[in-house]
Amino acid sequence: MIGNILVALVALIHVYIVYFEMVLWDTPRGQKTFRLTPDFASASKVLAANQGLYNGFLAAGLIWGLYLGAPGFQIKVFFLLCVAIAGLYGGATVGRKILLVQTVPAAIALIAIWLGW
């Protein structure tokens, strides 16, 4: 139960990321969140939307695993690993904050479902 709640939390985090990358990227709120200049936000809007779409696939995979219940264990593990690895890459190439937002929650959820919590 705890593991599934944590998986759902990771999925919700990614839905939120999708919203920021696909909708708010070039707004004042998006620019402040991602520390962007207006020119860069405008020039990179399509790339951010593409990135947001990929984050949406991660959320969809986690939701799919939750929907399947116990048979979705492997799906949840796969998508949590994808989230954790994406967070590690983002942490190494963009900023350490990504480790806290993506990798840490995914790793905690992965441990929880692995242990059957």
Rank of each mutant, 00 (worst) to 15 (best):
A70C: 02
Q31H: 02
V83C: 03
G90N: 07
A109R: 09
G52M: 09
L100E: 06
A92V: 10
V94I: 15
L58C: 08
D26Y: 00
A49D: 03
G69L: 10
L66W: 11
Q74V: 12
R96C: 04
I85H: 01
L36S: 04
L58A: 10
T37H: 00
L36M: 12
L24N: 08
G56F: 09
T33D: 09
K45I: 06
F73V: 06
Q51R: 08
I108Q: 09
L47H: 08
L110Q: 07
L62W: 03
I108E: 06
Y89N: 09
Q74I: 12
A107L: 15
V77Y: 01
P71Q: 13
R29S: 12
F57N: 01
Y67Q: 10
L68T: 11
G95N: 08
K45Y: 04
I63S: 08
A109L: 10
G52V: 08
Q102S: 10
L80G: 02
T33V: 11
L99W: 15
L81C: 14
A106Q: 03
L81T: 14
L47Y: 09
V77N: 01
V101I: 15
G65W: 03
Y67H: 12
A109C: 11
V83I: 13
R35L: 11
S44I: 00
L47A: 14
A107H: 03
K97F: 14
A92D: 07
A60K: 04
P105K: 12
K45F: 05
F78Y: 13
T27C: 06
G52H: 07
Q31Y: 02
R35F: 11
F40S: 02
G69M: 09
G61K: 02
L58E: 04
P38G: 00
L36F: 02
T103M: 10
G65S: 09
L62M: 15
K32A: 15
I75K: 01
V94L: 14
L88F: 15
L110S: 05
G95F: 10
L88K: 04
A43R: 11
L88H: 03
K45R: 15
I63F: 15
L110K: 09
V101K: 06
